[in-house]
């Protein structure tokens, strides 16, 4: 479960202060699929970073399964990200010198797990996202959709209960985007909490709950009008 209590995040100081997130309170139950939608600059990415322990709030608290993130040290937060949170980014963020298999195995290699066991699991995950035969290819040999699949497999490597996706279909054509969304839906069905950020209202409808943000604040918290 993810809970935000009066969370704010500001940058700069004095007259140059920018409030990216203002006094947001929110609870996301375990196993739910939440989409956060808003225009550019609405604060949705900042909110995601706060939930993912990538950033610290300037006000309020962020709790992840009762862990108050602001009270954790950097090492503890890193460990949390490694084991309990998986990230999927808009621009894939794969390492170009690693193969698809090695990119997927990256979180486990960072945790100094044995190469044999990590490679085995990574191969399984690649299979699951439909890229079992592409393990030895480098990112520059994959299409955009394939790269995003590899990124999703990487996010699932440590079997995290939470997946945070920042505009995962933003760089893909609509058909490919749909297939990515299906994969994320599959993660929900495996009882993971998925939080997806998008500026596309159509994609936002894919979630079980839609949170709309504007100017750093929660505007609306509603169920989708269409089911998929």
């Amino acid at each position: 479960m993810i809970r935000l209590e009066n969370v704010s995040r500001s940058y700069g100081s004095g007259a140059k202060t920018v409030a990216a997130v203002r006094d947001v309170s929110l609870t996301i139950e375990a196993g739910s699929f939440v989409t956060i939608v808003g225009a550019s600059g609405s604060g949705k990415s900042t909110l995601l970073n706060l939930m993912g322990a990538l950033d610290r709030p300037t006000g309020g608290r962020v709790l992840l399964d009762k862990h108050d993130l602001s009270s954790l040290s950097d090492a503890e937060r890193t460990l949390l990200r490694r084991t309990r949170i998986g990230f999927v980014f808009q621009f894939f963020n794969l390492l170009p010198t690693l193969t698809a298999l090695e990119n997927v195995a990256l979180p486990a290699r960072l945790a100094r797990m044995s190469k044999k066991s990590t490679d085995k699991r990574a191969a399984e995950l690649l299979d699951r996202v439909g890229l079992g035969a592409r393990g030895k290819h480098r990112p520059d040999e994959l299409s955009g959709g394939e790269m995003q699949r590899v990124a999703i497999a990487r996010a699932l490597m440590m079997d995290p209960p939470i997946l945070l996706a920042d505009e995962p279909t933003g760089n893909l054509d609509s058909n490919t985007g749909l297939s990515i969304l299906d994969l994320l839906r599959g993660a929900v069905e495996a009882h993971r909490t998925v939080v997806l950020i998008t500026h596309d209202a159509g994609i936002a409808q894919r979630g079980e709950r839609i949170i709309t943000m504007a100017d750093g604040q929660l505007l609306r918290d509603e169920k989708p009008t269409h089911t998929h």
Partner: peptide, 16 residues
């Protein structure tokens, strides 16, 4: 910068 951020996001420590 971006790669470093990604590494940190997937669990690399600062020391790594």
């Amino acid at each position: 910068q971006r790669e470093i951020g990604m590494l940190r996001a997937v669990g690399a420590t600062r020391a790594q």
